[in-house]
Computed example of a mutant assay.
Amino acid sequence: MKSLKSMKKPVIITAVSALAISGALFSQSTYAAQVTKPIQAVYNNIKIIYNGTEVPYDAKTEPFMLDGVTYLPLRLAGTALDKKVEWDGTNKRVVIADNGVPIDQSTVTALNNQITTLTQELNTAKAANTTKDATIAQLQKDNQTLKDDASKSSSSTLKDLQKELNDDHSDDYNTNSDISLSGNKNDITVTIEMTKSRWTDLSSSKQKSYLEDIVEDILKEYKNANVDGTVKNSSNRDKLASFTTNSRGDVTIKKIGTSFDASTIQRSLFDRYSNYAGYGFDFSVRGDSSKATVDVYVNSDDWNKLSNNQRSTLTDGIIDQLKDRESIDRVEGYIRNKGNSSQIATF
């Protein structure tokens, strides 16, 4: 055989030789019908390399070439590729299969048991989650019911107190007033309606005393409540006065339409905004506590350089200062050019 390889010459082999080669691949079997043909095989020291490693073989399983096609035994190829190769002589079939690792039945049983246990745990968790969701929903419903009941109770209690206040104070100082309450136990708003003449006929001290008597009775019932309110004209519901209280029940009355110290307000605005965003501003204020008008003077070029946010911050700050600090009910304003007082914008 070696001399044939070294000479690298074709060798004529008969069908008997071919059967000998195939016998190296498969166990011998009896063929129902055999055809014998002569073939010319070339042995040329062919090597088989799988993933960089040479696959060894012996003389019986040596690959060869026939008519330009390379042949090698399937069993040899199966060994290289980790496949199981068998010859089914009965059906004359070559059977190739993966080399699987057999799984012990106990392992299969254990895995199935584990799957069953995990499935049961999952179903239990789902059931618990459903119960939890139902509990949360019920608690939310109960909480809302409690809030509604508390609101109704507070409203009902305020209505009861309102009736008592009217019974006790509607005829005080010949006011012939109607008193109503709104809000809750922490913040109570009082609205008192009477004719304008009955209110203005009261002296300042009587107005204060009348309101403090009402507030005192409210604080007896709700000692920690914040109480404020308004006095309105019963004929047209125009506001005649507003009032606030402190924790002791002392009342501060703000009469509608009373004058204010314009120079003090202007000076306060100047101190706060005269150099706003690096630009110069002047201010003029007129009106009374029911309505004040503010003129803001600035160079038109400087106003145009301000962003929309800067403009809003300025005008909102002015309004808040007059309403919150100076107790003015309504504020309107104008942005004017310093050079000619022409109107640039309103707020």
Rank of each mutant, 00 (worst) to 15 (best):
L4A: 12
S6Q: 11
K8M: 09
K9D: 06
P10F: 04
I12Y: 10
I13Y: 06
V16A: 11
A18D: 07
L19Q: 13
L19R: 14
A20I: 06
I21E: 05
G23R: 08
F26Q: 07
S27I: 06
Q28V: 15
T30C: 03
A33C: 04
A33P: 00
T36N: 12
K37A: 13
I39R: 07
G52K: 04
G52L: 05
T53Y: 06
Y57G: 03
P63I: 05
M65P: 00
L72M: 15
L72Y: 12
L74C: 03
R75D: 08
L76G: 00
G78R: 03
A80L: 09
A80S: 12
V85E: 02
D88G: 07
G89N: 09
K92T: 13
V95C: 04
V95M: 10
D98C: 02
N99L: 13
P102S: 13
I103E: 12
Q105N: 12
Q105S: 13
S106V: 05
S106K: 10
V108K: 09
V108G: 01
A110S: 07
L111C: 00
N112M: 09
L118D: 11
E121V: 11
L122H: 05
N123A: 13
T124V: 10
A125F: 03
K126M: 07
K126E: 11
D133V: 14
A137W: 03
L139E: 08
N143H: 06
N143R: 08
Q144P: 01
Q144V: 05
D149S: 12
K152S: 09
S155E: 12
S155F: 04
K159M: 09
K159Q: 14
L161W: 02
L161H: 02
E164V: 13
H169N: 10
H169Q: 03
S170M: 03
S170K: 12
S170T: 10
D171S: 13
Y173W: 05
N174C: 01
S177E: 01
D178M: 05
D178S: 13
K185T: 10
K185E: 11
I192G: 01
K196L: 08
S197Y: 07
R198G: 03
W199S: 02
D201P: 01
Q207G: 01
Y210N: 10
L211G: 02
E216H: 13
I218A: 00
Y222A: 04
K223R: 08
A225H: 01
A225W: 00
V227Y: 00
G229C: 04
T230A: 11
T230F: 08
N233A: 10
S234D: 15
N236H: 02
N236Q: 02
R237K: 13
K239Y: 05
S247R: 07
S247P: 03
R248L: 14
T252N: 15
K254N: 15
K254L: 11
K255W: 00
T258W: 03
S259R: 06
S263A: 14
Y273K: 02
Y276V: 04
G278C: 02
S284H: 12
V285P: 02
G287H: 04
D288Y: 04
S289M: 11
V298C: 09
N299Q: 11
S300F: 04
S300Y: 11
W303E: 06
K305C: 07
K305Y: 14
R311A: 11
I318K: 01
I319A: 15
D320V: 12
K323H: 13
E326C: 06
V331D: 02
N337P: 05
N340L: 06
Q343Y: 10
A345P: 07
